[in-house]
């Protein structure tokens, strides 16, 4: 804060007072650089209200025209074909179907992803030691964090693609089908 202030107001060491700056406004600003702020009360609160109403209205419209699915009564004797997990887990279900060790896609991979996500802010820091700098070069990719962005984008698109395949392109007995046919 102090640094910024010094840039704006160059103080004369011989004087105990100084001209600050004349800024348009409705109230005096003390010990602060001129900044581009607005009052929260009308400006932000109006936007907040509009946004909330728009989302609620959109949700109401969707709920009016699309009914939530309700299938037959639960029956432990018959599995529906195909038996699908909720859509946010179909990516994992798709991965499970490739391997005969469900522990890898279902437990280990999600856990590793969660741990990696939690660690992101702790590994994306300014390297202070040579080891940290090497670490940074491998996992982050410098100041522009090229590798981290690449990995994260890969994670998002991987999740997206497997989820789409699992929820749209899988039909009876989990065989590949095209959704438009």
């Amino acid at each position: 804060m102090d640094k910024n202030q010094d840039k704006v107001f160059v103080k004369d060491p011989n004087k105990t007072y100084g001209l600050m700056e004349i800024v348009e406004g409705t109230s005096p600003m003390v010990e602060k650089a001129p900044e581009d702020t607005v009052d929260t009360f009308p400006h932000y609160i109006i936007l907040l209200t509009i946004c909330s109403l728009a989302v609620t209205f959109a949700l109401l419209l969707i709920s009016l025209f699309f009914d939530a699915p309700l299938e037959d009564l639960a029956n432990p004797l018959i599995t529906p074909n195909p038996g699908k997990a909720p859509w946010y887990f179909t990516g994992i279900q798709e991965l499970i179907h490739y391997t005969n060790k469900p522990v890898i896609p279902a437990i280990i991979i999600p856990l590793l992803i969660i741990v990696w996500l939690i660690l992101i802010p702790y590994i994306d820091r300014k390297p202070l030691t040579p080891f940290a700098s090497l670490f940074n070069r491998i996992f982050i990719g410098g100041e522009k964090r090229r590798i981290l962005i690449y990995l994260f984008t890969l994670f998002i698109f991987g999740a997206l693609i497997f989820t789409i395949i699992g929820s749209l392109f899988r039909g009876e007995n989990w065989s590949f089908v095209l959704p438009w046919k």
């Binding site: 432990p76 004797l77 018959i78 599995t79 074909n81 195909p82 038996g83 179907h97 007995n173 989990w174």
Partner: peptide
């Protein structure tokens, strides 16, 4: 629950193929 496919003479599982 797996199903018996009489035509192919196989058991088939609907969840993971």
């Amino acid at each position: 629950i797996v199903n018996w496919n009489e035509v192919l003479k196989k058991f088939e599982c609907p969840c993971h193929g």
